[in-house]
Design a protein around this nucleic acid. Structure first.
Lengths: 210, 210, 210, 210
DNA sequence: GATGAATGAGAGTTCATTCAT
DNA sequence: GATGAATGAACTCTCATTCAT
């Protein structure tokens, strides 16, 4: 296959991707290092040139996924001329879309035996999301639109709600997703203390979009 | 040890408890079936009289924990003469206390290598919690205190927020726990559309209690 | 099921029959004592009231089958007023029919994992068959129809040829069975030194019968 | 022992031979994979580099033995300038000698617990022998020396008679072997329809040889 | 960098057998 | 006679990791 010499980073990426494919197919514990090297077409020993251990690979996969998920969201948080509510809702959309549009990712998390992954990515993504969210909430307080007392906790709550891993199988049908999005928007904006006019306006926007 | 003949249910419980102790100590993967039977003082084969496999035991442990967690909460939801806000806050307290007060449970979930447990119990508990929450939210709508449009989604959000498994290490210090409880109360009540007077009153109650 | 007290011999027979059914289904090694007692509906320990060990049961099954196979054949050998050729051919028919008509027996022997059975029954049946055959051949020599020099060896050869266990899947289709029977008759009668007239006559009888 | 890296085919052969030695000593079921690897001096896992399972090794042993047995016999069947009777008798001798001279093979088959082997090798060898025998019988018919009507069935009968696995413990004493060989020769040649002169000549040859 | 045969501890699981009730 | 929970040694097989080539 691809046994010829290769740029180290490319080999590494190739191994990570093969691993993700196999984890999605067979689950973490059922996937042996030998399966991964076979998939890529390299020798058993080659694996240990790129990863210290299987656990090390698992870490790399967790980081890989978390980064992919958080990337776009952070960019939005830092876009300068945009009001907090707008940012928050765009972050929500970005997060929903990154997961719902990557069916490999969904398969990966849904696979029984990948619960450990789910948990670690979830924690990691939440951890990465919280600072961005906190900044946006703070901005909203400055703008006078959010009346919440503890922006840091609120950031955690919102991050937890956005939980990357589809807790309610909401991605299964578009209709459920629309419903869920509307309810989430209402709940979060109210939770942050928006006035009813803003809440109503944003729900209307969600509804007309679908 | 306890090798004499025993009522089947007692033996089973004994094995589940020994397993939980060891999982908390060494993690799921590092705990061998042989460790569990040694702890209980029975033969290797006895284990397979009560569980089809190690995975079957893990399921039993998940169910055992979920039930323990949800039990008290459901009782509160069904207490007849109590207003919805009161129920909701008591459910919150019950949930926080069942986890924070059982240090074995915390140890269990914190142990690296038990992420899979964490995830599965979390899902399971959320699933069990949602119907109770939904009933309470519906009650609150009837009472005119919650203005939320979608009680079912709200129930899911609240269940996810109460995530049994200590998402932010909030149980580590009492001070953080107080802070968290206050913020959570504010966020949830606002999210459900309570009027500001109620929110303020309940936050005050949390604050003075600590 | 049949857990009530029962005549010892009946219980034993019940266990042997259940064992044979399961051996036919799953093979010797894949059938556990626990499967057998479950099939009969008695407790694990009851088995050891009737058999010393699993090996003891296996012996009992071998004996059971061999006896069933050889029984009718021996009766024919000892029927007084009948010529040797007639006896030999009737023994052949009896042997073919006892196996071909008992599909359970065929299933039993065909099952991969029952090779050891096949072998032991085969040896045992051959051993039991030889004395009867020897007497018939001796009778044929006296009658002047067989010219063979060593009746004892010839008996062994014929027994081996009749090998109870369907070496060539000859029972699969009736047509093959007819063909096989004809060829076997020709070969054996010639092997025993019959004159060509007798051989031709008996082959004709086989052919017109079918 | 021989733990250094080795050509795969050599390793495989080494394992097969060690297995045969142990099977002869202790029987199939009493020989653990761990015994085999210990005998060879390699690690447990090494076994599974060369065989998928213990059953896979057993297959390999069956094939190994069958091939060894049949090899010489087939060579004789294909020797061009030789008459059918001569070929048949040489095939008989070859078959008897390959088994009688390899005491390891005899020990192997006699060991209680190796019945399954006996049976499988027997079937396999018979299967392999039939085509060669059929060709020789056909040749004999062309030469006018065999008068049999169904060469294919006859081939099967002869193969079954030659049953490699010592059905009557005939190899125990040389005298019995001589006797057996003589009787077998007589029976087979007559069975194939040789004229009495040929039968008498060949029996004489057997007798004077011993 | 790459190979892949070799490692070997240890896992989960089975099952013939026993014996107190 | 009958029970069935308990036994426990022994099994096959796995797989992350190493290292001489």
């Amino acid at each position: 296959m691809s046994s010829a010499r290769k740029a180290p980073a490319a080999r590494r990426a190739e191994l990570i991707e093969a691993a993700m494919r196999l984890f999605a197919e067979k689950g973490l514990d059922e996937t042996a290092v030998s399966d991964i090297v076979y998939e890529v077409g390299v020798a058993q020993g080659t694996f240990y040139l790129y990863f210290e251990s299987k656990a090390d690979l698992v870490n790399a996969v967790v980081v890989h996924i978390s980064e992919r998920i958080v990337e776009g969201v952070e960019r939005i948080a830092d876009q300068t001329p945009m009001c907090a509510v707008e940012k928050l809702l765009r972050m929500r959309d970005e997060l929903l879309s990154v997961v719902s549009e990557d069916s490999a990712l969904l398969a990966f998390f849904h696979r029984p035996g990948n619960e450990a992954f789910h948990d670690r990515v979830s924690r990691d993504a939440v951890r990465l999301l919280v600072p961005s969210l906190e900044r946006v909430i703070e901005q909203g307080r400055t703008e006078g639109v959010f009346k919440i007392s503890h922006p840091d906790d609120a950031a955690r709550f919102i991050a937890a709600l956005q939980d990357v891993t589809d807790p309610f199988d909401v991605f299964a049908e578009p209709e459920r997703l629309g419903h869920h999005t509307e309810a989430l928007t209402e709940f979060v904006l109210r939770g942050l203390g928006c006035d009813e006019a803003t809440v109503a306006r944003e729900i209307e926007r969600v509804r007309t979009r679908a």
